[in-house]
Computed example of a mutant assay.
Amino acid sequence: RPGGETPRAEMIAGVRVERVSGLPLTRASLRRRALSYLSLYPALLLRALRLPRADVVVTLTDPPLLAVLGPALKWLKGSRLVHWAQDLYPEVAEALGVLRPGGVLARLCRGLSTWALRQHDVIIAVGRCMKQRLCARGLAPERVWVIPNWAPATVQATDPSAGQTFRKQHGLEDRFVVMYSGNLGLAHPFEAVLDAAQLLRDLRPQIVFVVIGSGPRLAWVQHQAAARQLTNVRFLPPQPREDLAESLGAADLHLVTMHPALAGLVVPSKVYGALGVGRPCLFLGPAESEVAQLIQQFNCGEVLPAATGAVLADRILAWASAPARRQAVARQARAAAQTSQLSTAVAAFLSVFNTLQHQAAYAEPSNLGVCRRCPREALNATTGATGSEQGVCSLRS
């Protein structure tokens, strides 16, 4: 925090935030990163045990296997447990080559994770494909709710003309802008994107690729772009949240990529922002992913499960030559984004908490599953409790 250290505890928007610290986090070394994560677990558990009892404890997935701490709070403090799964470990680490698939460490982590998840009262998955993965581990389907992520509030009510200022600032007025905006992580392959940019550099110089974001693969992508002399690829830093509507709206076409082995293990949330500004999206990833299902359901882009650079370049050219199609898709894209809003997620979370509160009060099993219908069906449930009336502790670093 500029001008001083981050306080150990403070109130933010009416929510008390407690912080713990561990060893410095670095992406330079896998071993040092693992040690940093390990140093957080005891600090998080001790702090949570010292806090007043919460009715509900929510465990997250960063750092990995944080759900393992949840059962201790359930047993020692009598709290109900909810796990909010943004990704699944150790499967993600196996798919990316961080852990040997089926190795001793991977099997140990999976067994520990599955045991911990079975102690939770509810597991929230961010996609239907993730729910299938969780159930494949032997978790009861009725305990797994699907609550998708959402676009930032600054993007959800976007003016159709958003992006013009951004285009002028960066000299993009007369260009067809193909944008990748978000984290450049190990889960996001870029080979096909770079190959397509190389094919289009001389063929259609007015098409420009704009990469906005940061992450562990950024340096590699920048190096590749420089080595191939891709003058049609530009890099910009992450944009402030309040400017996202302008930056995302500057694109004519958005790209989202995902490693094919990660279907059901992660769900790229960047798609919600792209659709929120009414732009078509090309998804380079597995057809069974939540993102692919959303795009196909609303016909607001294309799914390219095994796209090569040539295939991607061909589809970009097709979209660049079809302004009427892009305009028609804008309405469909916004309709898709409307199904995944913050208000919908809040209603779903309140339904989870109220159900658990009811179970605790009457000590009888309840049918957990409001979101087990169509996971994108708008939840119109009204609740009698507000956030201030429920003791909810979110356990994360």
Rank of each mutant, 00 (worst) to 15 (best):
W319F: 09
L350I: 13
Q338P: 04
T339N: 01
R326I: 06
A318K: 11
A333H: 00
A336D: 02
A336R: 07
S340T: 00
H358N: 13
R331M: 09
S343E: 15
A335C: 09
A307V: 08
S321I: 00
L312Q: 02
R326W: 03
V370G: 14
Q359R: 12
L317P: 09
A335M: 13
A307D: 08
R325M: 07
A361K: 03
W319V: 01
A348H: 12
Q327Y: 09
V352K: 12
T355F: 04
A330I: 05
A322Y: 07
G309Q: 06
R372H: 14
T308Y: 02
S366E: 13
T339S: 05
P323R: 06
R331T: 03
T339G: 01
W319D: 04
F349H: 08
I316D: 05
R326E: 11
W319A: 02
W319K: 03
R372A: 13
V346R: 11
A322Q: 11
R326Q: 09
A310S: 11
Y362R: 15
S366N: 09
R325T: 02
Q357W: 14
A318R: 11
L368H: 12
S340G: 00
E364A: 10
P323A: 06
A318D: 14
A360C: 12
T339L: 00
A336K: 05
A318Q: 10
V370N: 15
G309E: 02
A320V: 05
D314P: 04
R331F: 13
L350N: 02
N367E: 12
A324C: 04
A328M: 05
V352Q: 08
L350H: 10
L317S: 07
A320I: 01
R334F: 00
A335F: 01
I316Y: 09
H358G: 06
T308R: 03
L312T: 00
A330E: 10
A345I: 02
A335L: 10
S340H: 03
A337I: 00
F353N: 06
R326G: 03
A307T: 09
R372L: 10
L350P: 00
A324F: 04
S366W: 13
G309I: 01
A361C: 12
Q359T: 06
A324E: 15
V346T: 07
A337S: 08
E364H: 07
Q341A: 06
R325E: 09
R326S: 04
A313D: 07
P323E: 13
A336I: 00
F349D: 07
F353E: 10
A361I: 04
T344I: 00
L356N: 04
R334G: 01
Q332A: 07
A336Q: 04
Q332T: 01
L368M: 13
Q338G: 01
A328W: 03
A347W: 05
T344D: 15
A307Y: 05
R315V: 02
V311L: 09
R326H: 04
D314G: 10
A328I: 00
N367W: 11
F353K: 03
A347T: 09
Q341R: 08
L317K: 08
Q327W: 13
S351G: 15
R331P: 06
T308C: 02
Q332Y: 08
R331H: 11
R334C: 02
A348N: 15
A307N: 08
L356M: 06
Y362V: 10
R372T: 02
L368A: 13
